[in-house]
């Protein structure tokens, strides 16, 4: 069984853990840098990206997270987590962790009253998937080797770049675990490749 961590500094941590467990992996709440070494994959959850960034800096997570990705270990960013993973953020000079070859824009669907849920197809994971968008970002453009996995009304909302997976919406807020299963599978394959 692979071990998948959820960065537990702030946000929807418990929901991701439940989804990881439902997908047949062991879920671990990560609050300290030392915990990263035991993981096969890491989810950066939804929450407030500004807050999460401050806490990542304060607890010295930035370099260890980049090293984690550099070792080929899969990372999955949802909503705020997607912003953390992106190489470019519209309107900002510097990215956060900056590992995934995509450009994202924050709050691009509007404020909370414009938040919504909609059904869409996620390539390789689900033909019909209910996606919950909350003050969500979207992916403005993707790099050459990044695959677009889902779009909503012409905007990219899920993508994969090598061992990095990201989506604008919140898979952890529904009981549909197919996208988490997709990520757990990525973690399993990465582990096999390393053994």
């Amino acid at each position: 069984m692979v071990k998948v961590g959820v960065l537990g500094l702030q946000g929807a941590v418990r929901e991701h853990i439940r989804s990881i467990e439902a997908s047949g992996a062991e879920g671990i709440v990560v609050k300290k840098v030392e915990q990263l070494s035991e993981l096969d994959g890491l989810i950066l959850p939804g929450g407030e990206s500004t807050t999460m960034r401050r806490l990542i800096d304060r607890y010295g997570f930035m370099e260890p997270l980049r090293e984690f990705g550099g070792q080929g270990k899969p990372m999955f960013g949802t909503c705020a987590g997607l912003i953390m993973l992106a190489k470019d953020i519209v309107g900002y000079d510097e990215p956060h962790i900056g590992l995934m070859d995509i450009t994202v824009e924050r709050n691009s669907f509007g404020r909370q009253k414009e938040s919504f849920e909609a059904d869409l197809a996620v390539k390789g994971a689900a033909d019909c998937y209910t996606a919950v968008f909350i003050r969500a970002p979207h992916i403005v453009s993707v790099g050459e080797n990044t695959e677009v996995l889902a779009e909503y009304e012409g905007r990219i909302v899920a993508a994969r770049d090598r061992h990095y997976l990201g989506c604008s919406f919140h898979p952890e807020l529904t009981d549909d675990h197919r996208l988490t299963e997709y990520f757990v599978h990525m973690a399993e394959q990465a582990k096999l490749a390393h053994v």
Binding site: G8, G47, C79, F133, H170
Partner: peptide
């Protein structure tokens, strides 16, 4: 597309967890 659903409204608060 549905706005203002329970999931969207409650989900917004879920994202605030662990915060001030």
């Amino acid at each position: 597309m549905n706005t203002g659903t329970d999931r969207v409204k409650r989900g917004m608060a879920e994202m605030q967890k662990g915060g001030v």
